[in-house]
Every structure is written in structure tokens, then in C-alpha cells.
Simulated scan of single mutants.
Amino acid sequence: MNPDITRMARSLNEWLWQHEFWLPPGITWEDMKESEDIHYPQPRDLLLSIPFALILVVIRYVFERAIALPLCAKLGVRDKQRPNAQPNPILETFYSTHCKNPKESELISLAKQCDLPVRKVERWFRRRRNTDRPSLSKKFCEACWRFTFYVIAFFTGLAVLYDKPWFWDHRECWTGYPQQVSHPGVKIVVINHVFSLDIF
């Protein structure tokens, strides 16, 4: 590798990881070294989120099919019958490649191309947009899953953190900084919870 590029990369790395950027005043990276009693989160811990996310996807699929859909039917949530848009290659191409809600001038132009009244073209786009919208049962299943997930996540967080001093007094978060002891169970739950919120 070119020595200049190597030197530039090293300088950039040193600049990026200056402790002044990342740590409070008076703390350097030397203070953050691990020991037998002190362990810090590592970037590799994020890899734990991948199997957790895959497991959650499977759980969500099973939950929606086995619990949410039957509950939806039992509560009387029914999908409204939506009239389908008639097949029309010109309008479908415009819908897919340009926009789903054309302006009046575009409606007039499309009506001329299809030899249809403007009103029918406008109705076609309205029906086509309705086709893409999720059904009531799908919305119900999604809402049911989100409700269940957030309730479980909330109480799981309480169960993991309720006996920790920093849960009741935020000033305890800084006691002994930067040598606080990191509980592995807490670390895994927090990483998974944050990653899961991004997905779900």
C-alpha cells in the first residue's frame, strides 16, 4: 500500500479517536482498559442483535397468524370490499414510474392517451391507490403486535433494572466512572431493545 495513504489513514484514525471527542475531561483511553473485574461493551456485542432480530421476525409472524388474526375475527374487524382498478397498461405504467396522484393536467393527458373520460381516469387512480393500502385486518395485526411487543419490552426492562441503584437515582450512573461494572444481562437486553425498536 502507498506509504502516503497509510500515513494519512493513521493520522485520520488518531484524529477521529481523540479522547477529547469521546470521553469526559480528565479521562483518557488508558482509563478505559478492561480488567478481570471491569468489562465494557464492545462493538462485537452488536452482533448479538442479528439472531435476536431474526428470532423476533419469526415470533412476529407466528403471533400475527396464530393470535392476532383469530382475535381480529373474534372482535368483528372485517376488511372492506374495495373495487379493483380495471387493467390498463398506460395508467399502470404512469402509476408505477411517475406518481400515484397525478395533477389535473396529467389526468387530461392520460385521458387522451387512453381515450377515456377524465373522471374515469381519476377514479382508476383512486381505486389503484386503495388497492395498495393495507387492509383493516393487516392494520389490526400490526397494532396488536406493536402493543404486545412494547408492553413486554417495558416490563422486561423493569424486571432487569428495578434492583439497580441507577434506575432510581440517575446520579448513580456516574459513580465510579469510568470503572462501572457492566452486567452482561443488562447489556444484552439494552442492545437488543434498541435494535428491535429500529426494526419494529
Rank of each mutant, 00 (worst) to 15 (best):
R123P: 02
T131M: 10
A85M: 09
M8E: 14
P70Q: 05
P51G: 10
R44L: 06
D37E: 15
I5A: 11
S35E: 05
F149S: 03
Q179V: 03
N130V: 03
W22P: 10
D163Y: 12
S182L: 11
F125S: 00
Q86E: 15
R44I: 07
T97Y: 01
I55Q: 11
F21G: 04
E34Y: 02
D31T: 07
C72F: 00
V77T: 02
P134F: 01
R82P: 11
G157T: 02
L75D: 11
D37K: 15
D45F: 03
P70H: 04
P184V: 01
R119C: 07
V181F: 03
R133W: 03
E172F: 04
L16S: 09
R126A: 06
F140G: 00
Q18N: 12
T156D: 06
L16R: 08
V58N: 10
F21Q: 03
K120I: 04
F125W: 00
S11A: 15
L56H: 08
S137L: 00
P178H: 03
P25I: 00
T6H: 09
V62W: 15
F167W: 12
D79R: 08
T148E: 08
R146D: 08
P184L: 02
D163I: 05
H98K: 14
K139I: 05
Q42E: 10
E92W: 05
C114D: 02
A66K: 13
R133L: 06
K100F: 05
C141G: 09
R82Y: 12
L116F: 07
A143D: 08
L197T: 13
F125A: 00
T97A: 02
V160N: 08
E92L: 12
